[in-house]
Design a binder for these strands. Structure first.
Lengths: 195, 195
DNA sequence: ACCTGAACACCGTTCAAGT
DNA sequence: ACCTGAACACCGTTCAAGT
């Protein structure tokens, strides 16, 4: 029910009053099932994450492919459901879905040969890129970036003037995958030097 | 005035009514200076970004040091002023401050020897890490991560059980710098292979 | 255990009016 | 150009009460 509203009408539409209406009940009835609105949103968004996780394939892929697949599915679920994505970047979402993503990331980074603190730090890095990508897609569409020009004299921003068209007109998923690729390249180089 | 409230009392305290009170004026008077609340927040947060940018040093540092310095200053300003940080990850902030950061990033990546689309894609990657780090610090303190355990049977999450203490108890800025380092390593490797 | 009704303390914003 | 006063259409949440 909460998931339906969040998916079809967005975050702003998911108010206690509207959800109560949709359930044919009084707003206060909801408080018998969750402690407050943040808890309600946490449950709903965790479910979105849980639904997004790909099942383990029959024959497991190499760790790098599997990592990209998992992290992309995580990101895409939040970008494709903007209501859920907006909540995810505004409050913590702790549940079976986010626990499962974290477990998979840690397992694959172990498999990749990272050791010690590098494992958790690499998992953290991946999380940053996912969170950043969700914020970027949900709040900074290309048209917004084009407004960057004109806030400083053009002579003061030669590189911005030169690169803005390419900077603004991105293929969002491709840019995310490129950032992910560079980051994983960094992990690998670190592991090879360290080992 | 808006900056003062945002910095000292946080985002929730910056309402049209409270700002009007602080200015000794009616809420509606504000609408004569900005079109709506989003525009007000955009102006305030852009100013926070602008104030954070380090001036160019007398003798310029190597591009990598300068890049880390700039991007860190950008992130730290938003983490240190949670009100501004929360706004920044919820809506676009376009102004002289964000234009200046983008210009500096593009200039240094050019200096680094990146060419073509790699320049804007690398700038995008850096942005993702900054946005992600701000979200992470402002919404996911260590105590939150510890709640991850228990949402799945422990036998299903061996890696989470093993790594959670290290995963949860992070030095936030160090983790950010490590992610940044890996990413820039990735840029460099790419450039060296591509060239 | 589960739900209701009325109220409290807020929001951002519109509209018509004043100087 | 700049500001006021009153109102509209909402919020999340508390509290006391009902079954």
């Amino acid at each position: 029910m909460a998931l339906g509203i969040l998916g079809s009408e967005g975050e702003a539409a998911l108010t206690m009053r509207r959800l109560a209406d949709a359930c044919g009940v009084t707003p206060m009835a909801i408080y018998h099932h969750v402690t407050d609105k943040a808890a309600l949103l946490e449950l709903a968004v965790n479910q979105v994450v849980l639904d997004a996780l790909p099942g383990r394939t029959a024959s497991p892929l190499p760790w790098r492919e599997e990592l990209v697949r998992t992290v992309s599915a995580f990101r895409n679920a939040l970008v494709d459901n903007p209501g859920a994505g907006r909540v995810f970047v505004r409050q913590a979402v702790v549940g079976s879905g986010t626990a499962a993503v974290t477990e998979i990331m840690l397992r694959l980074l172990n498999e990749a040969g990272l050791t010690g603190d590098a494992v958790v730090e690499a998992a953290d890095s991946l999380t940053l890129v996912v969170l950043g990508s969700v914020v970027n897609e949900l709040t900074r569409p290309p048209a917004v970036r084009e407004r960057l020009i004109g806030h400083l004299a053009e002579s003061e921003t030669p590189f911005l003037v030169q690169h803005l068209p390419a900077y603004a007109h991105r293929d969002p998923e491709k840019r995310f995958l490129r950032a992910l690729g560079w980051l994983i390249d960094g992990f690998e180089r670190d592991r090879d030097i360290g080992g």
